[in-house]
Measured scan of single mutants.
Amino acid sequence: MGTYKLILNGKTLKGETTTEAVDAATAEKVFKQYANDNGVDGEWTYDDATKTFTVTE
């Protein structure tokens, strides 16, 4: 398990959240659902060194 971070750079929603997941693929699924639930759809990037996903609208 590891802690993964999501940085939201949406047009109307900005912020950060974290999740505990077994791997990056699992964290990505959780974060994409979170972003979708909050109406954020954009370009995704992932930094393996910091376990950080970023979505920018």
Rank of each mutant, 00 (worst) to 15 (best):
V22Y: 14
Y34I: 07
E16R: 07
E16D: 05
V22T: 12
T56N: 11
T56E: 06
K11V: 12
K11T: 11
G10V: 11
D23L: 04
D41L: 14
T52R: 03
F53Y: 05
T12Q: 11
E28G: 08
T50C: 04
D41Q: 13
Q33N: 08
K14D: 05
V22G: 12
L6P: 00
Y46R: 02
N36S: 14
V55T: 03
K14I: 08
A35K: 01
Y34H: 04
Y46S: 01
L13A: 08
G42A: 03
T56W: 10
D47P: 00
G39L: 08
T17C: 11
K29I: 11
V40W: 12
V40Q: 04
I7H: 05
T18A: 08
N9G: 04
G15L: 15
N36C: 11
M1F: 12
A24R: 11
K29Q: 10
L6E: 00
V30N: 07
N9V: 14
V22H: 11
K11N: 13
G39D: 07
V30S: 06
T54E: 05
T26I: 06
D37T: 08
A49Q: 12
F31H: 01
A25Y: 12
V40D: 02
T54K: 06
G10R: 04
K14H: 10
T45P: 00
T52H: 02
F31S: 00
V30W: 15
T19F: 13
T17D: 03
E43M: 14
T56K: 06
T50K: 06
E43I: 14
Y46G: 00
T54Y: 13
A49E: 11
N38C: 10
N36K: 15
K29A: 12
L8G: 02
F31M: 03
L8Y: 09
M1P: 12
L6A: 03
Y46F: 07
L13Y: 15
T45R: 08
V22Q: 11
D47A: 04
F53H: 02
E16Q: 11
Q33D: 06
G2K: 14
G15M: 15
G42Q: 02
D48L: 10
G15A: 12
M1R: 07
A27D: 00
Y4A: 00
A49R: 09
Y46L: 02
E20Y: 14
K32V: 06
N36H: 15
A35Y: 03
A27Q: 00
F53E: 00
T19S: 05
K5Q: 05
Y46E: 00
G10M: 12
G10S: 09
D48A: 14
A27P: 01
T19I: 14
E20D: 14
A49W: 09
W44E: 00
G10C: 12
A24G: 04
F31W: 02
G39W: 06
T3K: 12
G15P: 04
N38Q: 13
T19G: 03
N38E: 07
G42H: 02
K32S: 04
G39Y: 06
A21E: 04
D23P: 01
G2I: 15
Y34A: 03
T19V: 14
A24I: 08
A25D: 09
D37W: 08
W44T: 01
G39H: 08
E43L: 13
F53S: 00
A25L: 10
N9R: 12
T26C: 06
N9H: 09
T18P: 02
E57L: 07
W44R: 00
Y46M: 02
K51S: 06
A24N: 05
A49P: 08
A49V: 12
N9W: 12
A27E: 00
K51T: 04
L13W: 14
E43A: 11
K11S: 12
E57I: 09
T19P: 01
T26E: 14
I7C: 05
D37A: 13
F31I: 01
G39M: 07
Q33F: 05
Y46A: 01
A21L: 02
E57D: 08
G15I: 15
F53T: 01
T45S: 13
E43W: 13
A27F: 00
E43G: 05
T54V: 08
K32Q: 08
K14A: 07
D47T: 05
G15V: 14
D41H: 15
A35H: 01
T56G: 04
L8Q: 02
I7Y: 07
D48Q: 12
T17M: 15
T54I: 10
G42P: 01
E16N: 06
D48S: 13
T12A: 10
Y34R: 03
V30C: 06
K14P: 06
D41F: 14
T52L: 04
D23G: 04
T52C: 06
G2N: 15
N36F: 14
G2D: 14
G42L: 03
A25W: 11
Y4Q: 00
T19K: 04
N38D: 03
D23W: 03
A49N: 13
T50A: 08
N36P: 02
M1A: 10
E28F: 15
G2A: 15
E20N: 10
A35I: 05
T19A: 08
T52N: 02
K51F: 12
K29H: 11
T3P: 05
T18W: 15
M1L: 13
T54S: 07
E20Q: 14
T54C: 06
K51Y: 08
D23E: 04
K11F: 11
K5F: 14
A49M: 13
K51W: 07
D47I: 05
T52G: 02
L13R: 08
D41I: 15
A49H: 11
Y4V: 01
T3C: 09
T18N: 07
V55F: 05
Q33R: 13
L6S: 01
E43H: 12
K51V: 03
L8K: 01
E57W: 14
E57Q: 12
T56L: 07
T12L: 13
K5W: 12
D47L: 04
V55N: 02
E43Q: 13
L6T: 01
E20P: 06
A21W: 02
E16F: 13
K14W: 09
T52F: 02
L6R: 00
Y46P: 00
T17E: 06
T18K: 07
E43D: 14
G39V: 04
K32G: 03
E28K: 11
Q33K: 15
D37N: 09
A25C: 09
E28Q: 12
A21T: 05
N38K: 14
A24F: 12
T12D: 10
V55I: 10
T50V: 06
T50N: 08
A21D: 03
N9L: 15
V22K: 10
G15W: 14
D48F: 10
V55S: 02
E28N: 05
T50I: 06
E43V: 14
K32M: 09
N9D: 09
V40S: 03
K5V: 10
Q33G: 07
T3D: 05
A24D: 05
G39S: 07
F53R: 00
T12I: 11
Y4W: 06
V40P: 02
D41T: 13
F31N: 00
F53N: 00
G2Y: 14
D47S: 06
A35E: 01
T18E: 09
Y34S: 02
K32T: 05
K5C: 06
I7T: 04
A27C: 02
V30M: 09
K29T: 09
T45Q: 10
L13V: 15
T56F: 08
N38A: 13
G10K: 04
T26P: 02
T19R: 05
N36M: 15
A24C: 09
L6K: 00
M1V: 11
T12S: 11
D47F: 04
T52V: 06
A35V: 09
Y34T: 03
A24Q: 13
D48H: 10
I7F: 07
V55K: 01
E28W: 14
T54N: 05
L8N: 02
V40L: 12
V40K: 02
K29D: 06
V22F: 13
A27K: 00
T3N: 07
T18D: 05
E16M: 12
A49Y: 11
T18Q: 11
D37G: 05
F31P: 00
I7S: 04
L8S: 03
E16T: 14
M1C: 08
K32Y: 06
E57R: 03
